[in-house]
Structure formats: structure tokens, C-alpha cells
Design a protein around this nucleic acid. Sequence first.
DNA 1: GGTTAGCATTAGTTTTACTAATGCATAGTA
DNA 2: TACTATGCATTAGTAAAACTAATGCTAACC
Lengths: 302, 302
Amino acid sequence: MTRRLPPLNALRAFEAAGRHLSFTKAAEELTVTQAAISHQVKALEDHLDTDLFIRMPRHLELSKAGKILLPVVTKAFDRIGNSVAQLNRNLASSALTVRLAPSFTAKWLSPRLDDFRKQFPQVDLSLTLSNDPVDFRRQPIDLAVTYGKGNWRGVLAERLLAIDFFPVCSPGYLRTVENLAEVADLERCTLLHDTNRKSWADWLALAGADTVNADRGTIVDDTNVLIQAAIDGLGIALGSSLFVADHLAAGRLVRPFDTIMHSDYAYYIVTTKQHLKRPEVADFKAWLLSQSTMATLESQPR
Amino acid sequence: MTRRLPPLNALRAFEAAGRHLSFTKAAEELTVTQAAISHQVKALEDHLDTDLFIRMPRHLELSKAGKILLPVVTKAFDRIGNSVAQLNRNLASSALTVRLAPSFTAKWLSPRLDDFRKQFPQVDLSLTLSNDPVDFRRQPIDLAVTYGKGNWRGVLAERLLAIDFFPVCSPGYLRTVENLAEVADLERCTLLHDTNRKSWADWLALAGADTVNADRGTIVDDTNVLIQAAIDGLGIALGSSLFVADHLAAGRLVRPFDTIMHSDYAYYIVTTKQHLKRPEVADFKAWLLSQSTMATLESQPR
DNA sequence: GGTTAGCATTAGTTTTACTAATGCATAGTA
DNA sequence: TACTATGCATTAGTAAAACTAATGCTAACC
């Protein structure tokens, strides 16, 4: 870690000066004298060992360094300012705050959410999308749906959806790769990977084709984008029922091989004992589980 | 504006304390005494008029307000820290920095970029995607491709791609809406809008159906998402050749009506005289224009 | 060629931030 | 139960940072 921040008050003076392109106006905004801004900017320039402004008589410009720094600092301060301004509102709200894996939300949760809103109209849901791990001690989050192996410490994790893997590609791609009869023939295909290249290696081992090199192909970091790439005929991806069932049904994707890998990975409901005491958290969790039970009753097309 | 920021040094103390969940460790990180952190956090709590921590003997927790504030402040400081750390690297680089409209990039630029890289392998391209207006005096940007009417002041704007509008929907949607014969029948359809609801009103007026109420339907703020919504059968969108040509060709979309609106809007190349003096900026601009000339030679399927 | 806008500089003052010492509460331990 | 260690709070005094007021400097503007 050891983040090395410049003097913060100097940053504030610089930010105002850069925004106004004027020390005098910045001084007005911060209700100090022009000399104060001049001092602070000078101090920041000394600290960074770069000029931030190009001083011309009666006219101020940002230097290249200033142009790089200004938007970053402005945005950072804006975010803090907004957060502070909304603090009281957020404190007052009793919203149920849920952090979700983006791909899961797009494919599974979104079409079901209306049902939750109908069943629990009084619950004010606030959703945030992120793959980051949740820290219930440092983030205002009541419950999360996270992709992983369920081996997190200090939290309650319950499996929501298991993920299985099998190869999929577009019918068009299948035609371009001639004689894709055996698993070993995958050697001639472009493999599309999700985040890390682990899954393909595992699947190939399961299918008895560990001679095929799994360290090739393209990495795409969002599951839905990965599947779209397969649909667009860029190669063969490892899909799971959750994400490809409708594409298989519509004929946009096909399964060149039958082997299904039952992986350790799944989408988990993650929360804490403490948070579960809030009835709306418990309700949402129960609702999620009820939805997943219904989902498994649907037949999955090959 | 008048953003009201809390004392910044107090924020820094709070952020470190929240991250460590310990005043003592925060003090170590900032190389001050524990008392200093205690003072600063107190001052911030007084300023915000809320507790940020729950103090327990030998154990520190974040209050709800603390949990709301901490991630925001941590991210903000991280960004500033990263930006500062990379300042020298970015100052040294001679990269061509280009700001692009995201939808334009996905559909038009991406497939062509390889060609630029082949023609100008020595140019180190740095792309940022945003619909925000560019301020060449405050942002380190050499050139932008922006959607608008080209009437910006203090910049050079040259039209790259004109945008025409016509209704599109999925073949499936067309079947669900019976007897969609006349423009007036749009009254019975879901209209999908881009950002503001202006375009539909203009098109309806052009098509002679100003009786149809254009203030209905769904707003989607990214063009590609909008088009996807139309493909998914959610309603009728106003598409333009650039974004729907391939979907029309593949039969995923159809045109229920012929009327094409030639709008004032277009994608413009925006830069300044000053920036054009850099040869790589001039090269990139010339390349963009050459690509657009080639594009117009392609026939657009109905 | 005088006037003015706007940043810089200097010296002195005010405000903020910090330290050192100590207090207080309690979890862990014998 | 008493003893020890941990960790934040408080108080009083000190050091450092930030600020002001006055003035200087430069070149654009008329």
C-alpha cells in the first residue's frame, strides 16, 4: 500500500485554481486571499517537482501535468462532496443494499426482480454491481451475490446457483473448423477464456484431452461479453447453462461436445448473522433461494 | 457549484483509521501519534455532526455513516495517489490521447483501429471513452470524436459521420403488433428513446404523424443497448445505418416504415489548432476522414 | 505611455495539527 | 478476583502549516 498523497489543502487550492483558470477566482471560492492560493499551488508544485500552471501576464494556463492531474482531483473531490452531501439522506434511508455480480444480474436476477418488488413492495432495494469481494465491516452492504467457491471467512455463504461448464460456439464457427470430431481437434480452435485460463485446462483434463494446449486464445473478463464473442463466431467458449440456455434454444450457439464439467464454482448468497437480523435481508435471501429452486425445475435444452 | 468539502486532513485520518479499523495503526501509517488521529476523527465527526466509528474497548467498528463514507474516500484518495504516482510516466509519454463517444467506438472505430495501428505503428494511442464534452484547456486530450451538432465554440469541429434516423424493431415484435400499416398505428407501440425524447417527436413530425404522442416508452442511454433492446423485442427504436446495418442484414431487425430523417446530429472530429500542430494528431484526423469516405462506399441494406 | 489585471514575494500573524503525558474502560489471563 | 495489556480519549502545551496585508513585478490594453 503506502499511498503517497500530496498535501491535501494544496490539492484543493490547485483544483479550484485549475477549474477557474484563475488564482484570484479560486481565492474567492475558498474565501481566502489570492496570496494563499499562490502559496499553496507553489507548495504543490514543489512537492510534485513539476509546474502545474503556465503563468502568463493576465492569463493562466494549465501545464501538461496540470491537465493530467486536474480532472482526477476534481472528480475525486466531487465524489467526496456528493457523498458527504447525501450522507444524511442515506443515513435516514432503510434501503436494503445488495452487491451483485454483474453477469449474474444481467442474466438471472433482472428478469426476476419484478417478482420481488411485487412480493415485497415496501422494501426499498438499492443494487450495486461489482465483482469486488465484499467487506461487511467497511462497506454499507447487507447482502451480496458473489461468484466463487464459498470458502470465505467470517461470513455466511449459501450456494444459490451451481455453475457447470461445457464448450459452446456459433453454428457458423463450427462450419469453418472442419472435422471437429474429437476433443483433441480443439487444438485447431480459438479458445475464449473467462478471466483466468483455468477452466479450459480443467475441462480438457476431464474430457481426456490434456494434450491440448489450454494457454491459447483470448481472455474476456465479463461472462456475457464472452458469450457474445462466441455467438459472433470468434471461437469456442466454456459456457454454463445459466448463460447460454436461451442462445442454445435459439440456435445462436451449439455444443460441439457433450462433456459437462461440474465445477466447484457457484454463485453464493453472502451475508452475516448480524445483517440477517433485519427482516428485509432475510426476506430477500429467502426469495433468492425460492427463485433458484424454481429455476432448476425448468428443463435446459441441450 | 459551491461544493462543501469537510476538512481534508481529517478525512485522511478517518480514511486510514477506517481502513485499519484502528486509530493506532492509522497513526503508524501516517507517522503521527494516536492522539492526532483521535483529534482529527473527532473534528470530522463534529463537522459532519455524525459518529463515524463505534468505539468499543479494544475494538473499533465503523458506524453506518462511516461505512457509507469510507469506500468513497478510499477510492477518491486511491485515484489521486495513482494519478500522482503516474504523473512522471504520463509526462514523459508522447501518446496521442483521444476521447471517444462509446457507442461510436464499439460500432465504427474498433473494427478499423487495426488499420491505423498498421499504418502508424510508431504512434502510441491512448483511448478514453466518454460522452462528456471535452475541455481542451483543462483535460490532456488531443482529439475527440463527439456526437452533436458541431456548434461548439473555441474548437475545430469537422463532420465525420452524419446520422440518419428510421424506425426499427425485431421481426417478432412486428408480429405481436397487429396491423402496423400506417405511421399513426405507432400509437399502439412501445417507443424506445435515446437519452432525450426529442428524436421520435422529430421523426413523427417528418412522417406526418404528429398526432402520435412521442412522450411514451423507455429511455435507454447507450445507443448499442438501445438497439439491443429493439432486437430483444422490447419495442420500436429509432436506429441509424451506422448502428443497425448489420442487424438489418442478418434479419434481427426490420424497418416497419420507410421514412428516413436526416438529422442535424453527427459524429464530429473535435480538436484545436494548437493540437493539430502535432503530426500524430493531424495523421489520426486524416485517417479518420479517410475511413469515413471508404465507409460511405459500402452499400447499406434496407 | 499610463493604467490595470493578475500572479509573486516577503514578513508577520493566526489557525491548525501535533505531541507527550496521562486517564479510562475492559478483554484477556492467572 | 486481581493483574496486565490494549486501545481510544483528554488536556495542556508546542510546532507547523496556512493565511493576511502590503507591495512588487510583468505585460496586455486603451
